[in-house]
């Protein structure tokens, strides 16, 4: 279990993470959402031991996490798929997997079995020997994910794993993440795409300016922070939008005044929650 216990981290005057607390359970996809500069990457870096918290404790598997990144022991249990494609492009996909597998202590048949399994997981079996520079963006993304799980870790951290890929590859990545959950892994998933979080994440933490704004399941978040839905009504050539928590009642009221030709109800979603919690001002 990954535990953030009142963790804070500053860079000079900037408080990147401020008193952040959460726990990630086994078999759960945990979404970490926030606007640019919210502190997501800092939190991920602390989770993998690249950064040391100024205050609080990051723990893994109920033991104090050794914050020194040179201390190898705790890192055997976690895998990271960075936001950028972190692969050696001059060598083949299988060789990338083999290299990182060796770094995690895999040898011989164990290593080869994992390489085969991960190529299959990423749907790259047929192109395993091909150099990565020849891969498409989607193939590289899938390999980036496969490398993170070559050593079969308990905790997998995926930092915006679908950036820059086409819908087919994105859907393939969703399926792989669901497979990881089904296999009992803890998955921490950061993204800017609300529909991804809504589809994949069992629970979502929304952070802004380093602070935890809300943490719950997606339906609970919508219930608590989504606000009213929108009833869109068309009458003749005019169209109007009405905020409402009772769409049928509102529709009846409108029908009583004037005949409604067409209507559509837009319920609140995770994006509404996100904007309600973090505001609509641009973040740089």
């Amino acid at each position: 279990m990954l535990v953030f216990d009142h963790v804070s981290k500053s860079f000079g005057d900037l408080r990147a993470v401020d008193d952040l607390s959460f726990e990630v359970e086994a078999g759960e996809v945990f979404g970490l959402l926030g606007p640019n500069g919210a502190g997501k990457t800092t939190a991920i870096n602390m989770a993998v031991g690249l950064l040391e918290p100024d205050e609080g404790v990051v723990r893994f598997a109920d033991e104090a996490f050794d914050r020194d990144p040179r201390d190898a022991e705790n890192r055997r249990s976690l895998g990271l798929a960075p936001q950028s494609i972190a692969l050696y492009e001059q060598i083949g996909g299988a060789d990338n997997l083999r290299f990182f597998g060796r770094l995690h202590g895999l040898r011989g048949t164990d290593l080869e079995e994992r390489v085969v399994a991960c190529l299959d997981f990423a749907d790259l079996t047929d192109v395993g020997k091909k150099v990565v520079s020849k891969y498409s963006g989607g193939m590289k993304r899938r390999l980036n994910l496969a490398v993170a799980i070559i050593h079969d870790p308990e905790l997998v951290l995926l930092d915006e794993p679908t950036v820059g890929v086409d819908p087919q590859s994105r859907n393939a990545i969703f399926e792989r993440v669901e497979q990881l959950r089904d296999a009992g892994k803890e998955v921490v998933y950061t993204t800017h795409y609300m529909e991804e979080a809504q589809r994949l994440c069992d629970r979502v933490a929304i952070i802004d300016r380093g602070r935890l704004m809300a943490l719950d399941t997606v339906p609970a978040l919508i219930e608590a922070h989504g606000g009213p839905g929108n009833l869109v009504v068309r009458t003749g050539d005019s169209e109007s939008r009405h905020e409402t928590t009772d769409p049928l009642g509102t529709l009846a009221e409108l029908q009583a005044r004037q005949a409604v030709d067409h209507f559509q109800y837009l319920p609140p979603d995770l994006e509404t929650v996100f904007l309600n919690l973090t505001g609509r001002a641009l973040r740089d």
Binding site: P69, R75, G105
Partner: peptide, 12 residues
């Protein structure tokens, strides 16, 4: 290229 992060996260 990001591979340094992977190396640093590896148990080495």
């Amino acid at each position: 290229r990001g591979t340094l992060m992977r190396l640093l996260v590896a148990p080495i």
